[in-house]
Computed example of a mutant assay.
Amino acid sequence: MAVVVALGAFLMTLVGGWTAQRVTDRRHLVLGLAGGLMLGVVGLDLLPESLATAGKPVFGVPQALLLFVGGFLFAHVVERLLAVRRAAHGGDTGKRAPQVGLTAAAAMVGHSLMDGVALGAAFQVGGGMGATVALAVITHDFADGFNTYTITSLYGNARRRALAMLAADALAPVVGAASTLLFTLPAEFLGSYLGFFGGALLYLAAAEILPEAHHTHPARTTLLCTALGVAFIWLVVGLSG
Protein backbone atom coordinates (compact mmCIF):
# COMPACT_ATOMS: atom_id res chain seq x y z
CA MET A 1 0.00 0.00 0.00
CA ALA A 2 2.81 2.40 0.88
CA VAL A 3 4.38 2.02 -2.56
CA VAL A 4 1.05 2.75 -4.25
CA VAL A 5 0.60 5.90 -2.15
CA ALA A 6 4.20 6.91 -2.93
CA LEU A 7 3.20 7.06 -6.61
CA GLY A 8 1.02 10.01 -5.64
CA ALA A 9 4.10 11.70 -4.21
CA PHE A 10 5.90 10.91 -7.48
CA LEU A 11 3.22 12.73 -9.50
CA MET A 12 3.01 15.66 -7.08
CA THR A 13 6.78 16.18 -7.27
CA LEU A 14 6.61 16.34 -11.06
CA VAL A 15 3.74 18.84 -10.87
CA GLY A 16 5.84 21.03 -8.57
CA GLY A 17 8.81 20.93 -10.96
CA TRP A 18 6.56 21.61 -13.96
CA THR A 19 5.12 24.66 -12.19
CA ALA A 20 8.61 26.00 -11.51
CA GLN A 21 9.45 25.69 -15.22
CA ARG A 22 6.31 27.38 -16.49
CA VAL A 23 6.68 30.64 -14.58
CA THR A 24 10.18 31.63 -15.67
CA ASP A 25 8.91 35.06 -16.78
CA ARG A 26 8.14 35.75 -13.13
CA ARG A 27 11.44 34.45 -11.78
CA HIS A 28 11.47 36.72 -8.74
CA LEU A 29 8.05 35.42 -7.70
CA VAL A 30 9.21 31.83 -8.22
CA LEU A 31 12.27 32.41 -6.04
CA GLY A 32 10.21 34.23 -3.41
CA LEU A 33 7.79 31.31 -3.24
CA ALA A 34 10.61 28.77 -3.20
CA GLY A 35 12.27 30.62 -0.31
CA GLY A 36 9.02 30.62 1.63
CA LEU A 37 8.44 26.94 0.99
CA MET A 38 11.97 26.10 2.11
CA LEU A 39 11.67 28.25 5.23
CA GLY A 40 8.36 26.62 6.08
CA VAL A 41 9.67 23.10 5.52
CA VAL A 42 12.69 23.75 7.76
CA GLY A 43 11.00 25.62 10.59
CA LEU A 44 7.63 23.91 10.70
CA ASP A 45 8.40 20.37 9.54
CA LEU A 46 12.04 19.24 9.56
CA LEU A 47 13.29 20.89 12.74
CA PRO A 48 10.35 19.89 15.00
CA GLU A 49 10.55 16.30 13.72
CA SER A 50 14.30 16.24 14.24
CA LEU A 51 14.03 17.60 17.79
CA ALA A 52 11.53 14.88 18.62
CA THR A 53 13.60 11.96 17.34
CA ALA A 54 17.31 12.88 17.06
CA GLY A 55 18.43 11.53 20.43
CA LYS A 56 19.84 12.89 23.67
CA PRO A 57 21.42 16.35 24.20
CA VAL A 58 25.16 16.68 23.64
CA PHE A 59 26.91 18.85 26.25
CA GLY A 60 23.66 20.62 27.12
CA VAL A 61 22.48 21.20 23.54
CA PRO A 62 19.89 19.05 21.71
CA GLN A 63 21.59 16.84 19.15
CA ALA A 64 19.14 18.01 16.50
CA LEU A 65 20.17 21.65 16.95
CA LEU A 66 23.88 20.79 16.78
CA LEU A 67 23.30 18.97 13.51
CA PHE A 68 21.12 21.83 12.29
CA VAL A 69 23.95 24.33 12.87
CA GLY A 70 26.38 21.84 11.34
CA GLY A 71 24.28 21.56 8.20
CA PHE A 72 24.12 25.36 7.91
CA LEU A 73 27.89 25.70 8.29
CA PHE A 74 28.51 22.82 5.90
CA ALA A 75 26.49 24.50 3.14
CA HIS A 76 28.30 27.79 3.77
CA VAL A 77 31.77 26.19 3.74
CA VAL A 78 31.06 24.22 0.55
CA GLU A 79 29.92 27.35 -1.26
CA ARG A 80 32.91 29.39 -0.06
CA LEU A 81 35.40 26.67 -1.03
CA LEU A 82 33.93 26.52 -4.51
CA ALA A 83 34.15 30.31 -4.76
CA VAL A 84 37.84 30.22 -3.74
CA ARG A 85 38.48 27.48 -6.28
CA ARG A 86 36.91 29.56 -9.06
CA ALA A 87 38.98 32.58 -8.04
CA ALA A 88 42.18 30.52 -8.12
CA HIS A 89 41.38 29.52 -11.70
CA GLY A 90 40.55 33.06 -12.77
CA GLY A 91 36.80 32.59 -12.62
CA ASP A 92 34.08 35.02 -11.61
CA THR A 93 33.65 34.75 -7.81
CA GLY A 94 30.25 36.42 -8.07
CA LYS A 95 28.93 33.62 -10.23
CA ARG A 96 27.19 30.72 -8.51
CA ALA A 97 28.80 27.30 -8.73
CA PRO A 98 26.63 24.69 -10.47
CA GLN A 99 28.03 22.07 -8.06
CA VAL A 100 26.29 23.80 -5.16
CA GLY A 101 22.95 23.54 -6.94
CA LEU A 102 23.50 19.87 -7.71
CA THR A 103 24.57 19.16 -4.13
CA ALA A 104 21.52 20.93 -2.75
CA ALA A 105 19.24 19.10 -5.18
CA ALA A 106 20.86 15.79 -4.20
CA ALA A 107 20.05 16.62 -0.57
CA MET A 108 16.44 17.22 -1.62
CA VAL A 109 16.44 13.79 -3.26
CA GLY A 110 17.77 12.30 -0.03
CA HIS A 111 15.02 14.06 1.90
CA SER A 112 12.39 12.64 -0.46
CA LEU A 113 13.91 9.19 0.00
CA MET A 114 13.47 9.58 3.76
CA ASP A 115 9.89 10.70 3.13
CA GLY A 116 9.27 7.39 1.40
CA VAL A 117 10.88 5.48 4.27
CA ALA A 118 8.69 7.37 6.76
CA LEU A 119 5.64 6.58 4.65
CA GLY A 120 6.44 2.88 4.58
CA ALA A 121 7.13 2.80 8.32
CA ALA A 122 3.84 4.57 9.05
CA PHE A 123 1.86 1.96 7.13
CA GLN A 124 3.67 -0.73 9.11
CA VAL A 125 2.28 0.86 12.29
CA GLY A 126 -1.29 1.02 10.94
CA GLY A 127 -3.61 2.33 8.24
CA GLY A 128 -4.57 5.46 10.18
CA MET A 129 -0.98 6.48 10.77
CA GLY A 130 -0.16 5.68 7.16
CA ALA A 131 -2.96 7.89 5.87
CA THR A 132 -1.83 10.81 8.01
CA VAL A 133 1.77 10.58 6.86
CA ALA A 134 0.64 10.04 3.26
CA LEU A 135 -1.26 13.36 3.30
CA ALA A 136 1.82 15.20 4.54
CA VAL A 137 4.23 13.52 2.12
CA ILE A 138 2.07 13.85 -1.00
CA THR A 139 1.17 17.48 -0.33
CA HIS A 140 4.60 18.81 0.53
CA ASP A 141 6.26 16.89 -2.32
CA PHE A 142 4.85 19.62 -4.54
CA ALA A 143 7.19 21.98 -2.67
CA ASP A 144 10.03 19.46 -3.00
CA GLY A 145 9.66 19.26 -6.76
CA PHE A 146 9.33 23.03 -7.05
CA ASN A 147 12.44 23.63 -4.94
CA THR A 148 14.54 20.90 -6.57
CA TYR A 149 14.07 22.33 -10.06
CA THR A 150 14.45 25.94 -8.86
CA ILE A 151 17.65 25.34 -6.87
CA THR A 152 19.32 23.35 -9.64
CA SER A 153 18.49 26.01 -12.24
CA LEU A 154 19.36 28.97 -10.01
CA TYR A 155 23.00 27.83 -9.78
CA GLY A 156 23.46 27.83 -13.54
CA ASN A 157 22.89 24.16 -14.34
CA ALA A 158 21.47 23.25 -17.74
CA ARG A 159 17.77 22.45 -18.03
CA ARG A 160 18.49 18.76 -18.65
CA ARG A 161 20.33 18.54 -15.33
CA ALA A 162 17.48 20.25 -13.54
CA LEU A 163 15.03 17.80 -15.13
CA ALA A 164 17.25 14.86 -14.20
CA MET A 165 17.34 15.96 -10.55
CA LEU A 166 13.58 16.50 -10.65
CA ALA A 167 13.07 12.96 -11.96
CA ALA A 168 15.35 11.57 -9.23
CA ASP A 169 13.43 13.52 -6.60
CA ALA A 170 10.13 12.17 -7.92
CA LEU A 171 11.35 8.56 -7.85
CA ALA A 172 12.95 8.84 -4.41
CA PRO A 173 9.79 8.44 -2.26
CA VAL A 174 8.76 5.38 -4.27
CA VAL A 175 12.19 3.81 -3.69
CA GLY A 176 12.09 4.77 -0.02
CA ALA A 177 8.66 3.27 0.51
CA ALA A 178 9.68 0.07 -1.29
CA SER A 179 12.80 -0.24 0.89
CA THR A 180 10.67 -0.61 4.02
CA LEU A 181 9.52 -3.95 2.67
CA LEU A 182 13.06 -5.12 3.48
CA PHE A 183 14.13 -3.03 6.51
CA THR A 184 13.45 0.10 8.53
CA LEU A 185 15.90 2.77 9.66
CA PRO A 186 16.11 3.77 13.36
CA ALA A 187 14.09 6.88 14.20
CA GLU A 188 17.17 8.52 15.75
CA PHE A 189 19.07 8.23 12.47
CA LEU A 190 16.20 9.80 10.55
CA GLY A 191 15.96 12.62 13.07
CA SER A 192 19.69 13.32 12.85
CA TYR A 193 19.54 13.46 9.06
CA LEU A 194 16.55 15.83 9.12
CA GLY A 195 18.38 18.20 11.49
CA PHE A 196 21.49 18.37 9.31
CA PHE A 197 19.48 18.71 6.09
CA GLY A 198 17.32 21.43 7.62
CA GLY A 199 20.36 23.55 8.44
CA ALA A 200 21.73 23.27 4.91
CA LEU A 201 18.34 24.09 3.44
CA LEU A 202 17.94 27.15 5.64
CA TYR A 203 21.32 28.47 4.48
CA LEU A 204 20.28 28.18 0.84
CA ALA A 205 16.95 29.88 1.51
CA ALA A 206 18.30 32.74 3.63
CA ALA A 207 21.67 33.37 1.95
CA GLU A 208 20.87 32.59 -1.68
CA ILE A 209 17.25 32.12 -2.72
CA LEU A 210 15.57 35.05 -0.95
CA PRO A 211 18.34 37.63 -1.63
CA GLU A 212 18.23 36.67 -5.31
CA ALA A 213 14.44 37.01 -5.35
CA HIS A 214 14.65 40.61 -4.12
CA HIS A 215 17.84 41.63 -5.95
CA THR A 216 16.24 43.04 -9.10
CA HIS A 217 12.57 42.95 -8.09
CA PRO A 218 12.17 44.28 -4.51
CA ALA A 219 8.38 44.07 -4.87
CA ARG A 220 5.68 43.48 -2.29
CA THR A 221 4.37 40.64 -4.43
CA THR A 222 7.64 38.78 -3.87
CA LEU A 223 7.24 39.15 -0.11
CA LEU A 224 3.67 37.94 -0.46
CA CYS A 225 4.84 34.84 -2.35
CA THR A 226 7.33 34.10 0.44
CA ALA A 227 4.62 34.43 3.07
CA LEU A 228 2.30 32.23 1.02
CA GLY A 229 5.02 29.57 0.78
CA VAL A 230 5.37 29.48 4.57
CA ALA A 231 1.58 29.47 5.02
CA PHE A 232 1.22 26.56 2.61
CA ILE A 233 3.64 24.40 4.59
CA TRP A 234 1.89 25.44 7.82
CA LEU A 235 -1.41 24.27 6.32
CA VAL A 236 0.14 20.94 5.32
CA VAL A 237 1.62 20.41 8.78
CA GLY A 238 -1.65 21.36 10.43
CA LEU A 239 -3.74 19.00 8.29
CA SER A 240 -1.36 16.11 8.86
CA GLY A 241 -0.92 16.70 12.60
Rank of each mutant, 00 (worst) to 15 (best):
L14M: 15
V15S: 07
G17K: 01
W18E: 13
T19V: 15
T19R: 06
A20P: 05
Q21K: 14
Q21T: 12
R22I: 02
R22C: 04
V23S: 10
T24R: 13
D25V: 10
D25E: 15
L29Q: 12
L29V: 13
L29S: 08
V30E: 04
V30Q: 06
L31M: 12
L31W: 03
G32M: 06
L33R: 02
A34C: 15
A34M: 07
G36R: 01
L37T: 03
M38Y: 01
L39W: 05
G40D: 01
D45P: 04
D45K: 07
L46D: 05
L47I: 14
P48Q: 10
P48S: 11
E49Q: 13
S50A: 14
A52H: 11
A52W: 04
A52T: 08
T53H: 14
T53Q: 13
A54P: 05
K56I: 10
K56N: 11
P57A: 09
V58F: 14
V58K: 05
F59E: 12
P62E: 09
Q63P: 05
Q63E: 14
Q63D: 10
L65F: 15
L67C: 09
F68V: 09
V69Q: 00
V69R: 06
G70Q: 06
G70C: 09
G70T: 09
G71M: 03
L73F: 14
F74Y: 13
A75M: 13
E79L: 07
E79K: 04
R80H: 13
R80L: 13
R80D: 12
L82W: 08
A83M: 15
A83W: 01
A83P: 08
V84K: 14
V84N: 11
V84S: 12
A88Y: 08
G91A: 10
D92I: 00
D92S: 09
D92K: 07
K95N: 10
R96Q: 11
R96E: 11
A97G: 00
A97W: 01
A97H: 07
P98I: 00
Q99F: 11
Q99R: 12
T103W: 10
T103E: 02
A105M: 04
A107N: 05
A107C: 11
A107V: 14
M108G: 07
V109S: 06
G110Q: 06
S112T: 09
L113V: 06
L113F: 15
L113M: 10
M114K: 00
M114C: 08
D115T: 01
D115W: 06
G116R: 04
G116N: 05
G116F: 05
V117T: 02
V117S: 02
A121R: 02
A122L: 10
F123K: 03
V125P: 05
G127R: 13
G127Y: 11
G128T: 13
M129Y: 08
A131I: 00
L135G: 00
L135Y: 09
V137N: 03
I138M: 12
I138L: 13
H140P: 00
D141L: 07
D141W: 01
F142Y: 11
A143M: 08
D144T: 05
D144Q: 04
G145Q: 01
G145E: 04
N147P: 01
T148W: 03
T150E: 01
T150K: 03
I151G: 06
T152L: 03
Y155N: 11
Y155I: 02
N157I: 02
N157A: 10
N157M: 00
R159Y: 01
R160M: 03
R160H: 12
R161A: 09
R161P: 03
R161T: 11
